[in-house]
Amino acid sequence: MLYRSGRTCWKRFATVLLPAVAAAAALGIGMAQGALAASFFISDQKFQLAADRLAGRGVSIYPVVDVTRSGTLVPVVVLGFNHADVKRLCVSAVIPIPVLGPYTLMLTSSDQQTVEASNLFIDTTSVRADQVNSRDIDLGVAAGAIRKGPINPGDRNSRFFDPNVFASQVNAAVLTNVRVISVASTAGTLSVPGFDLQIEQGSHQCF
């Protein structure tokens, strides 16, 4: 199945996230019990993730609510991959430093070699790609019934995970010129050839 799009739209997830947000507020969040979507408190900052090409096998897409250490609820869409190959990875975050001002922390990979990850989860608030090619996609599957792709164990055990909510799964997908705004990312294994981590004064993000 082929999508030709400049932007992947997550508007349909807004309606399914509202009940989860309302339930979380009614429960008073319960932060002392560590009820977290990704098994940890996320920071109050978002970061950028960019790649020339992202190829995934066993892909899941489902909504959940992450929680910051200060107790803020952050609705996200989780992209899960059993296995992912990434060309020209870039990850950047602007960090405000008292007195000195903003600094950008940037991680990049080799231009020639491929980053490989297993059990990769990216908690996103925005995803853009010039094109997405996918194979054997199921739209509207219940999140708790996803079988083709992974569910983060921390999400599955979270009070903010609804197993009956709208989700999707794909046997394989390839995204080109990917631009993601993320609040958290985890991986079971991650191999980054040409690993380069830099911090530079000012704002110099991936895109």
Rank of each mutant, 00 (worst) to 15 (best):
D162G: 08
V59S: 03
P98Y: 00
T176R: 10
L73F: 04
I29G: 00
L17C: 04
N157K: 15
V141D: 12
K46V: 10
R12E: 11
S43Q: 12
M1G: 12
S168K: 01
V74K: 07
I151F: 02
S191H: 14
V64K: 07
V99C: 10
P163I: 12
A55G: 03
A35R: 15
A25L: 15
S182D: 15
L17Y: 07
N171K: 09
T176P: 01
K148E: 05
S39R: 13
S134P: 05
N152V: 13
A24S: 05
V165T: 15
A35C: 05
Q45V: 15
F160H: 08
V127D: 00
F40H: 13
V64A: 07
F40V: 08
P102S: 01
N157D: 10
L17E: 09
V64S: 13
F40W: 13
Y3Q: 14
L197C: 04
V180H: 03
A32K: 14
L49R: 00
V94G: 05
I97T: 12
L27H: 10
S126C: 06
F161S: 08
L107K: 09
P63W: 01
F40M: 05
T186H: 07
T124C: 04
M106V: 09
D155I: 11
I181E: 09
D136P: 02
A25C: 12
G6M: 07
S158G: 03
G71D: 02
G28D: 07
N119C: 14
S182F: 05
S185D: 04
L17I: 01
S185Q: 13
S182K: 05
D130M: 04
A173Q: 02
T186P: 02
L175D: 02
S191C: 03
D155S: 15
Q198I: 08
S39T: 11
T189R: 07
N171F: 00
G144V: 06
N164D: 15
S92D: 00
V178R: 03
F160N: 04
R7V: 11
A22E: 14
I151N: 07
